[in-house]
Simulated assay, not measured.
Amino acid sequence: MPDLHRTATELFLKTSTTLHRRLIDVTAGKLGTRFKNMPTLTLTTTGRRTGKPHTVVLTVPIVDGPRYLIVASRGGDEISPAWFHNLSANPSVEVSFQHGPSQPMTARVLPAAEREARWPQILQAYPGYATYQNRTTRVIPVVELSPRSDH
């Protein structure tokens, strides 16, 4: 028997990201480039099993110059989002920040000490991440996206 909660969560996440991407595209970025008082970006990863591109819309709690920190919370679910698994397998990604031009970037999962140092800033940007962390036993990963020329 399939896990109905996981199936419903997957359907909700896929539907909401598709609708969010369409809103951004249809309004040429006039709507949808901020969510929960944070800027958004579209992240395109390469599927670790399919090799096909997958694009999601994510919030950006920290903009650090040309770098962005994103949080693999999945709302506090026990499993990390698919995009996190994809960029862990292949850190070469494409990013469009607030409906700007797409640029090649490299994803790097922050090591524990660096994650802990940045976590208070992330919570300042969106306190809801604390609720997500409390919902799960996993340590929610934080990912830095950097322009590829920086590496």
Results as ranks from 00 to 15, higher is better:
Pro2Lys: 13
Pro2Glu: 13
Asp3Thr: 07
Asp3Pro: 10
His5Ala: 10
Ala8Val: 06
Thr9Ile: 07
Glu10Pro: 00
Leu11Cys: 00
Phe12Asp: 09
Lys14Tyr: 01
Ser16Trp: 10
Leu19Ala: 11
Leu19Cys: 02
Arg21Ala: 15
Leu23Gly: 05
Ile24Gln: 07
Asp25Ser: 12
Val26Tyr: 01
Val26Thr: 07
Leu31Glu: 03
Leu31Ile: 11
Leu31Phe: 15
Leu31Thr: 03
Gly32Asn: 09
Gly32Trp: 08
Gly32Glu: 09
Gly32Val: 08
Arg34Met: 03
Phe35Glu: 08
Phe35Ala: 14
Lys36Ser: 11
Asn37Ser: 14
Met38Val: 02
Leu43Val: 04
Arg49Ala: 09
Gly51Phe: 13
Pro53Phe: 10
Thr55Trp: 05
Thr55Asp: 02
Val57Leu: 09
Thr59Leu: 05
Val60Asn: 10
Val63Phe: 03
Gly65Pro: 11
Pro66Gly: 04
Arg67Glu: 13
Arg67Gln: 11
Tyr68Arg: 10
Tyr68Gly: 08
Leu69Gln: 02
Ile70Leu: 09
Ser73Ile: 11
Gly76Thr: 05
Asp77Asn: 08
Ile79Val: 12
Ser80Gln: 11
Pro81Gly: 02
Asn86Trp: 04
Leu87Tyr: 09
Ser88Asp: 04
Asn90Leu: 00
Val93Pro: 00
Val95Pro: 06
Val95Phe: 04
Phe97Asn: 03
Gln98Ser: 13
Gln98His: 07
Pro101Val: 01
Pro101Ile: 00
Ser102Lys: 12
Gln103Pro: 02
Arg115Cys: 00
Arg115Glu: 03
Glu116Met: 05
Ala117His: 07
Arg118Val: 13
Ile122Thr: 09
Ile122Met: 07
Gln124Cys: 08
Tyr126Arg: 11
Pro127Trp: 01
Gly128Asp: 08
Tyr129Asp: 10
Asn134Gln: 12
Arg135Met: 06
Arg135Lys: 14
Arg135Ser: 05
Ile140Tyr: 02
Val142His: 01
Leu145Ile: 06
Pro147Leu: 07
Pro147Phe: 07
Pro147Ile: 04
Ser149Arg: 07
